[in-house]
Amino acid sequence: MQTKDRYIQQFDETQEMALTTKNLHIYYGDFEAISEADLQIPRFKITALIGASGSGKSTFLRSLNRMNDNVADVKGEIWYRDLNLNSKEIDVYAMRRQIGMVFQRPNPFPKSIYENITFALERHGITDKKELAERVETSLKQAALWEEVKDKLNQSALALSGGQAQRLCIARAIALQPDILLLDEPASALDPISTAQLEETLVNLKQHYTIVIVTHNLPQAARISDYTAHFSQGKVIEFNNTKETFTDPKVKLTNDYISGDFG
């Protein structure tokens, strides 16, 4: 079955897309980190980006909401709501409000748990006390952290455990009620129990959000994602629904990678 060099699943017209990339090339100086990554990311699904270290998946992810602006040279198109995000007219700050990102290492601000969530909200013009309190509660509940922190909202967020801190980072991202959440190996710094909690949280979140997650943890990708894209040397070589990717890969390299012969 693994006869192809490349397999990209095509969607029919009825499937709504959250993000679509076209002719994307990303350079670090002379080095081309991404050379072929035409990807359609369906709405309200979890899409996992997998691949060996250095395959370009994190670079790709960080370019989606222009976090690479001063780091790498991004050429090509990123379509979101009929807008090419990779163009000058885009206001990156307003755009990032819609396309949030959570990083590998939990990075709560050195402020209270409450302020960690309200800080960005206030910056985006939400200052009504009642609404702020509501958003804090809703986002913490959605991130499955509310029960653990509801009595210590005014304590420093730096006192949280790694898993709690990461869920706080997710909470503060979804408090902005974005469209899309980009997650860059969000569980790699967490212990197994925290990881399991985080995965459960993500699966619940996809009712409201489109999630793109970079992960090195293949079982995790298999457990939580609907679609999987396999990156290899700056190219997407396989994109399919997750079940098929893991049970019946169409590309040999993907088979090698998921069966552990590679990377």
Binding site: R81, D91, Q98, R123
Partner: peptide, 19 residues
């Protein structure tokens, strides 16, 4: 829907602050 598009295409408070 349109509101979001519009917000992304207009200069935000943040970008003015940044400048």
């Amino acid at each position: 829907m349109d509101k979001i598009r519009e917000s992304i295409l207009t200069k935000s408070h943040a970008s003015k602050l940044e400048r």
